[in-house]
Design a protein around this nucleic acid. Sequence first.
DNA 1: TCGCGTCAACTTGCATACTAGTATGCCATC
DNA 2: GATGGCATACTAGTATGCAAGTTGACGCGA
Lengths: 231, 231
Amino acid sequence: MTDTPTSSAPTDIRGPRLHGVYDALRAAVLSGEIRPGEGISETRVAARYGVSRTPVREAFRRLADEGFLRIVPQVGTFVAPIQLAAVSDSQFIRETLECRTVRLAAERAEAGDVASLARLLDSHRAVMSPDRHSEFFALDEATHAELARIAGRPAVWDLLVAVKAQLDRVRFLSLHSEGWAAKIVGEHQSIVDRVAARDPDGAEEAMRAHLRTVFAAVDEIARTNSHFFET
Amino acid sequence: MTDTPTSSAPTDIRGPRLHGVYDALRAAVLSGEIRPGEGISETRVAARYGVSRTPVREAFRRLADEGFLRIVPQVGTFVAPIQLAAVSDSQFIRETLECRTVRLAAERAEAGDVASLARLLDSHRAVMSPDRHSEFFALDEATHAELARIAGRPAVWDLLVAVKAQLDRVRFLSLHSEGWAAKIVGEHQSIVDRVAARDPDGAEEAMRAHLRTVFAAVDEIARTNSHFFET
DNA sequence: TCGCGTCAACTTGCATACTAGTATGCCATC
DNA sequence: GATGGCATACTAGTATGCAAGTTGACGCGA
């Protein structure tokens, strides 16, 4: 995967056709609109989006690098099954890195940083209704990104975004239960509290508890959707 | 041409033309044969390797994703300067993940694992002479990979291989001093000893000390070759 | 009915032609 | 001599045609 911590996407401003196809396909795979195992072809996708095969090809290659597609030469390109091993590895890497960064955040946080986190929490609480799921998701990510920034390691979150990809595919398989949003925001609150209190140990423990919640949900979803997975 | 420290693409079995160009360019950038800031063009590279622009283009895109090239649309493609921030982030990520995996390795190691590590150390000692630098480098990597495997997280090393890329560029800038090889092997020995003793704390500490040695060398090289870098 | 060989219809990999945007250097003009 | 405008020679982005390979269906024969 193929992503270096810093110089990845931000400085990349390549063709608009490529980005259109790439974004559309990525969303389609992530949301489950195209299901694991399903075959797609450069020609068909090109025709559908009204572009030639070349930008489609590049989009395919990038998505294959991210683990979303599997390109078999002379045969076809298929949506990759979600690999349980990859999900487990993502969890391990995420927990390891985020527990360390949140410690640093707790050690380094200044007043402005705490205020910024508080603002994010307020915004998060405002979009807890089920019909604003995508906004909720975006603010979830933003909170974790902000913690990495405060820790002085924004690139770590950039890396995690790539690493998390397989994990996010699982998350999209199922809408969450009733109290889910409240639980997430509450756990974020605990983390922010510990960061504001400059308590690295507490912050790490709160982050670990939070991630365990997320991972447990992922495992549950994986069990009930085993046909999408590959051992 | 020197060795590429990392075997590149994990699960990719695409055309031989693409791989030839990709491997050659990667090695050329890593070894400093093509220097940061230097411009290369799809057309010229295609002509030089006797292929068309298409496989060159894919190789460029992949190398750009890895942080080796910078593609500026309608202008040109250039060897990316080594970004000090990226090097620092690589170090942080590597230390965080490897200290955790070596703990796990120490907890999980079985007799066969320890024997395997011992074999690697013996091989390593056998190639300490300066003229076998590339073999030494390869065994260094193999030892770290083996520790990740013993920890039950081989994928973590796969990730680190990608993350380390910018760090390896720095390493290639300079041959190491006289006692370097002995020092590295000695530190590896300490790590393996602690793993063999099922001492997670000691193993983590030994790994941390080892990485600090490596990072110090990187910093030293970075200081004395600042013209290759970008702040 | 089963097995095997043939072939047609796909697929992606590669080569090449064309488009459009950018940097540069020359030349006319002031 | 300095400067503005333009021609030109690059660049990467895109489109498309061809080649090589695989798959699977179809039909023939046992």
